[in-house]
Design a protein around this nucleic acid. Structure first.
Length: 280
DNA sequence: ATCCAGGATAGCG
DNA sequence: CGCTATCATGGA
């Protein structure tokens, strides 16, 4: 299959796809095969150029957020040592644009799971309930639509090793499929209204809601605070002090990291997750 | 073996 | 509000 070139400065495909925002891309032939919503795509990178096949160009550009103003985003980061190191380490990561249901469902299964296992669960659910997309030597599975998951039995989800998250995923699928909550309508809401809508799903609290706001609804100031970000804040920005409550951490983070707090968070997350060792 | 993982939630003082 | 136990499962 012929590969189509695409200029992609200030972009790192491997880091972006493996930074814990999306979990289903599979290495193949020096690149990655996966699904962009219901479209099969194969993408590889050579320096400042991407080569892709399957999906159309607009889908790839939009999904990978190649139109984001990276210079402006990087300039918005606070000027401190931890941020500087993370920015170098995570250079080229972009906050990609995921389909809302697929993003919500994936992060519903992320509670108290390591990135590796979130990935395993995502791939299993896709293989068992999604659509097989095939073209030439490449194939991938789409994430099952809510209408599909709404009809599966709880036991089938438990077989995917979801544990206590199975009930939440099933409930969410039914709430979307029935029209009780309209994920496309949420796109038009203010960030605060959207957050209030998202936490109506069982199993979705402020952290997962912020993941969906950031990774699916383009709210680049939304900042999910997980165990890693809390660790960064406590060990870097509140070193020496004690007892910083979660509400205080949130207020600090939103103010300190600014209008692209979600981006800053993703750079810190990627850096710390891959370099952190307990003894320094 | 013991602890922890991109949390949420109910129950408690 | 702030703290804690609990919820499955697997990797380190």
């Amino acid at each position: 299959m012929s590969l189509q070139p695409l200029p992609a400065p200030c972009f790192d495909l491997e880091k972006t796809l493996n930074s814990g925002q999306v979990f289903h891309w599979v290495r193949q032939d020096g690149g990655f095969a996966g699904a962009i919503a219901e479209e099969l795509a194969y993408i590889e990178q050579d320096g400042r150029t991407l080569f892709f096949s399957g999906a159309d160009e607009h889908s790839v550009v939009h999904y990978l957020a190649l139109d984001h103003p990276l210079d402006q985003i990087l300039n918005s980061f606070p000027d401190d040592p931890a941020m500087k190191v993370a920015t170098e380490y995570s250079a080229g990561i972009r906050i990609i644009r995921q389909e809302p249901w697929e993003c919500l469902a994936t992060f519903l299964t992320s509670a108290m799971k390591q990135v590796l296992h979130i990935r395993a669960i995502s791939l299993t659910i896709r293989q068992r309930f999604g659509r097989l997309l095939r073209s030439g030597d490449f194939c991938a599975f789409s994430y099952p639509r809510p209408e599909v998951l709404a009809t599966v039995r709880l036991e089938q989800l438990l077989e995917c090793k979801l544990g206590f998250r199975a009930r939440n995923l099933l409930s969410a699928a039914r709430m979307v499929a029935s029209g009780e909550i309209d994920l496309e309508a949420i796109r038009k809401l203010s960030t605060e209204e959207a957050r209030r809508a998202l936490v109506q799903f069982p199993g979705v609290g402020e952290k997962i809601a912020n993941c969906v706001l950031l990774f699916a609804y383009e709210r680049l100031n939304a900042i999910p605070i997980d165990v890693w970000i809390a660790r960064v804040l406590n060990e870097v920005y509140f070193k020496g002090r004690q007892k910083i409550s979660m509400p205080e951490l949130k207020i600090f983070a939103e103010n300190y990291f600014g209008s692209y707090a979600g981006y800053a968070q993703q750079y810190l997350f990627h850096h710390w997750r891959l370099t952190y060792r307990k003894k320094g």
